[in-house]
């Protein structure tokens, strides 16, 4: 009785382990937070990029408009990649672009915008990166689509053409 039970349980355990490992192989081992959360827009106070006036979040995000909040920096290489799509998005007047200039300095950032164009309606500077954390961001570039004071979609890494189409579909 004992000699039959234990081996079969043992074999069963190892079979299950095998199946789990087998399935686990297909999962990515890099963690990315959920991108479809309906979270409130965090409130913050930041200095404006152009002048040092303080801007508070409630002033920026009005109720019935779409906003595209984009975290960028002149030192970030993927930001250059996504820039053309931001310029494309700017053409759509149903959406406003809010730029978070992440740990950057004014000279580099301005020449970045001069060279590639300025897609943003308003730019705030996140000097020490703490405001981005309030948004739940952890790298550059990262973007959030905001509607009615809620984050409805989140983009980790540079946006591409598909993302652009998706955004345009949502705001239409």
């Amino acid at each position: 009785m004992k000699s039959r039970y234990i081996p079969s349980i043992l074999i069963l355990i190892f079979l299950i382990t095998f199946v789990i490992f087998f399935k686990g192989l297909k999962n990515s081992n890099i963690y990315t937070p959920d991108t479809n959360l309906k979270k409130e827009v965090p409130s913050f106070e930041l200095k404006s990029f152009e002048n040092d006036s303080i801007v508070i979040s409630e002033k920026i995000f009005q109720d019935n408009d779409y906003y595209f909040m984009n975290i960028w920096a002149s030192w970030c290489i993927p930001c250059k990649e996504e820039h053309e799509f931001l310029m494309e998005l700017k053409k759509n007047d149903k959406i406003q672009l809010v730029g978070f200039n992440y740990k950057d300095n004014f000279t580099n950032a301005s020449s970045f915008l001069k060279d590639l164009g300025n897609p943003y309606d308003i730019i705030l500077s996140d000097k020490d990166g703490t405001a981005s954390i309030e948004w739940g961001a952890y790298g550059v570039p990262e973007s959030f689509l905001v509607y009615q004071n809620k984050i409805i979609k989140r983009f980790i890494g540079p946006i591409n053409n598909d993302d652009l189409l998706e955004i345009q579909k949502i705001i239409r």
Partner: peptide, 18 residues
């Protein structure tokens, strides 16, 4: 979240510093 094997304390990534 940047160097996913490390704690925020140990990491020196921009994210961890912020």
């Amino acid at each position: 979240l940047i160097c996913q094997g490390q704690s925020v304390h140990d990491s020196d990534s921009e994210f961890a510093i912020s």
